[in-house]
Design a protein around this nucleic acid. Sequence first.
DNA 1: TTGATTGTAACCCAGGTGGTTACAAAGTCA
DNA 2: TGACTTTGTAACCACCTGGGTTACAATCAA
Lengths: 98, 98
Amino acid sequence: MQMFNPAHPGEILKELVIESLGITITDAAEHLGVSRKTLSKILNGNAAISPEMAVRLELVFSKPNADHWLRVQNAYDLWQTRMEKEKLNVSPYDFEAA
Amino acid sequence: MQMFNPAHPGEILKELVIESLGITITDAAEHLGVSRKTLSKILNGNAAISPEMAVRLELVFSKPNADHWLRVQNAYDLWQTRMEKEKLNVSPYDFEAA
DNA sequence: TTGATTGTAACCCAGGTGGTTACAAAGTCA
DNA sequence: TGACTTTGTAACCACCTGGGTTACAATCAA
């Protein structure tokens, strides 16, 4: 369980891959085989890293593997969801009253 | 990297939670605050465990936490995606030609 | 200044998650 | 057997997301 609001995966992707390689977003998108818009949305936190995108990143840049990218995305998604868990309106299962 | 086709998360959920508690799917769905159909689809591999569903499972049954459910879902999704990674049609980035 | 780069809006499409209702098939039990 | 419960799933709905293209304004860099 994370304690603090985790950075969105796009920030990490931008720093860890694109900036560290010194390539442009346009270039990275082409290498990944997706549109510039698709990558841009992820980098700016307006889209998630899908399983397919995670595999693309792994195949092209190899560095962090696909599992890693999905774990980062999970951490972000879970944080967001837990922030509003009251809305789920559920109660713990009563194992005693089984 | 998994070596063999992982079981879909629904199978695990069915065995680990529902069957082990001896409750019905109808009952479990009510506790989770979702429709019977929604839970049924997951159990039969026709739907994924979403971040929200993962938190519901954690809040209600506590046992495996939400992170675990998403990791199980990731493993399944990644396997499926990697099965067809040729279709992604991408090549490793050439770090030399930087 | 000029050209490259970028974010994003508007629009499209496919698919996924979730809901309700309804029905047929099975299982359970008096 | 008959009655009730449980289950999967079809049909239909709403909404969101991923991904694409085109286009435009803003910004960056040579």
